[in-house]
Amino acid sequence: MRDNANHTPESLPPGPGVGYKPQHYSDILADPGPVRWLEIHAENYMGDGGRPLAQLRHLSERFPISVHGVGLSIGGEGRLDPEHLARLAHLVGWLRPASFSEHLAWSTHEGAFLNDLLPLPYTRATLARVCDHIDELQEAIGRRMLLENPSTYLAFAESEMSETDFLREVARRTGCGLLLDVNNVFVSATNQQTDPRACIDDFPIGAVGEIHLGGYDEDADDEGAPLLIDSHGREIADPVWALLDHTLARSGPLPVLIEWDNDVPEWPVLAGEAARAAKHLEKVAA
């Protein structure tokens, strides 16, 4: 009855995890350091065989795995791609991950996959569509999912509600949980010129099952206003660590993921970010 014997935990441990990159495979097995769980992008593990699946199978015997979808287009105006739903159901079926998450965004239009998390107007029509799609996904994979708040760079004139109100209503109607990306809150609040702390204070924190952290790049818009880009290509910025403390003070300990997808560093650098997350988590556990 050891809960490590068979890695099908119902949820992720409330400690640091990292986004898994194949170049870190041997390092992670040799010394995971503070890292207690791993997150993978679902779409990279949808081949018929080969090294990616073999490595994932092996890692899943050692670590709880979070499957993070980046391509379902939950906010798309069209119907969900039934082939992709089937691929997700297959992956979740054999891997039995500790968590499954996807994004409040769209990425496919009329069969063309645009490979970015594109923004949505927060209207009643969008809400109805997103809820239908989440119902369909949760039905297909046979489990509850977490929905992630996006990084946004612009506003829609037609939006009728705030992002937090939108997420609260999605969680209430579908029963899904939420993935709170604290970096995305900071990036979006800066770009939308709102208060990131107020956003965290208003966030439906009881539904949150996982936190994401990542690095951003700094730019400026046409008027010279700050424009932060969610690049996942560097260390997490100091104000985002501070916002993490603010979040954890409300939520208590949660699984916290370090995302580093571009210019991926050597393992010790990534493990160092995870160690930093562990320190922030210890502050709330104490």
Binding site: D116, A155, F156, A157, N191, Q193, E223, L227
Partner: peptide, 20 residues
């Protein structure tokens, strides 16, 4: 209908998505 917080045209902000 895509704008900055001040209500200006999205311009460079839209270009972030184009670039991505």
């Amino acid at each position: 209908s895509l704008t900055s917080p001040s209500g200006a045209q999205a311009g460079k902000r839209f270009d972030v998505y184009r670039n991505n």
